[in-house]
Write a protein that binds this DNA or RNA. Structure first.
Lengths: 235, 235
DNA sequence: ACAAACACGTGATCC
DNA sequence: TGGATCACGTGTTTG
């Protein structure tokens, strides 16, 4: 319960857990602990190659703890804060999920077999969100995808809110999905809304706030790249 | 790739992974490593209280590695053998499983609704799935609804895009819906997304661009009005 | 006082 | 030749 305060400092999240009890330790660090820093490097270069490993190892530990904490975050019923317990709970949870998933999937299979209905998806898509005729899938004039708005806003510590609107033509949605899939980001929530002439895409991404501008540029260039190939056909 | 041979020895399973490269270490163990066992216990009792911690720590490490390896065993698609990578893959896999399970469960729900025939469901719903709780903003602390972001952007001639995020508590969604209903705007498309700690609301409104600022203020004041009544309970 | 849990620095190992 | 990863022993803190 008291071993992750350095995560609290160094990491990003997890602001709960009060009291930073352990002694200092951070980017700074006195790094000649008290008075004895002992053996290696008898004189001359005190911290060249020998102490390069120290910071490396420190980072490794830090990252590992961050990951471990992230693991703990996705497991709902945690009992103890032990490192070992965290992993154990994660294992149990995974097995539980697998079991449950298998059960529900077989259940679906059975229900499908029992129902000769099986129309499945005869209709490609109902226009949904009723009214407003002017069916959502129409060409409009623009040659291909055209970006109308793009915002990448940091939400809290390590979450980015991507919000883009673009013109909508046939196949735009799939292209957009493929585009974001290709980035393989850690998407928390995605949301696509189609309306007569435009397409709105909102998604929460787990990423460091530092990546904000990079991500925005990445999206812009990718969409721009979607425009130039003059092969329009490809649903 | 070479750090879990001791698990291989000590643990139970996973006989694959050849070569036990690292130096010895096991139940036996020379436990005065090479020639120097150094400092503690200047004389008399060489291993009483001081070196009791050593074996304890050794067991802790062993157990932690066993658990970590067991975790790796239940995750299907592992890439690297890194400790950190193992945890990362486990996290991704858990999220993937959660998503999949939610999908299939809603699918079952839909099928059941369409078919009043099928009785035969012994259990109404297993618990789990939802509630990742934990982070995505601390949430928690805020007393009621808290507005995190609000944008009112004109889209074209007479369309306004309202985009707001707020903290999510019990009853937040209904309140928000009632709020927007009370405005009786011409809503073209509305979209609400709930994620663990926050609530995202996106809607297209048919209104003149002149009303932009007025609408924004209207929303802000309405939400602010929702905050002050100190009656927190309200499903 | 005692045991459990952790972070640290260090040497070894592979790529 | 370094960079990355690991296990180890040790000191410290908490219950």
């Amino acid at each position: 319960m008291l071993w992750m305060e350095n995560i609290e400092n160094v990491g990003d999240e997890c602001r709960n857990y009060l009291h930073t009890p352990y002694l200092l330790e951070n980017q700074e660090y006195s790094w000649t602990i008290d008075g004895y820093y002992d053996s290696s490097s008898p004189d001359g270069a005190p911290s060249s190659a020998a102490s390069k490993n120290i910071v490396s190892e420190r980072n490794r530990r830090k990252q590992l703890n961050q990951r471990l904490f992230a693991l703990r975050a996705v497991v709902p019923n945690i009992t103890k804060m032990d490192k070992a317990s965290i992993i154990k709970d994660a294992i149990d949870y995974i097995q539980q999920l697998q079991e449950e998933l298998a059960k529900t999937q077989t259940e679906i299979m059975e229900m499908e077999c029992n129902n000769p209905v099986t129309e499945e998806q005869p209709r490609p898509l109902p226009q949904l969100l009723g009214s407003h005729n002017t069916n959502v899938f129409n060409s409009a004039s623009s040659p291909n995808i055209q970006l109308l708005q793009l915002n990448v806003t940091p939400m809290g510590d390590n979450i980015l809110l991507v919000n883009l609107t673009c013109t909508k033509r046939a196949g735009t949605i799939v292209k957009l999905c493929q585009l974001f899939e290709s980035f393989n980001l850690k998407i928390i929530t995605a949301n696509i809304t189609a309306l007569p002439g435009a397409l709105l895409n909102t998604l929460f991404i787990e990423a460091d706030v530092k990546e904000k501008d990079g991500l925005k540029m990445q999206i812009e260039t990718a969409i721009a790249a979607l425009m130039d190939p003059p092969s329009p056909m490809m649903t």
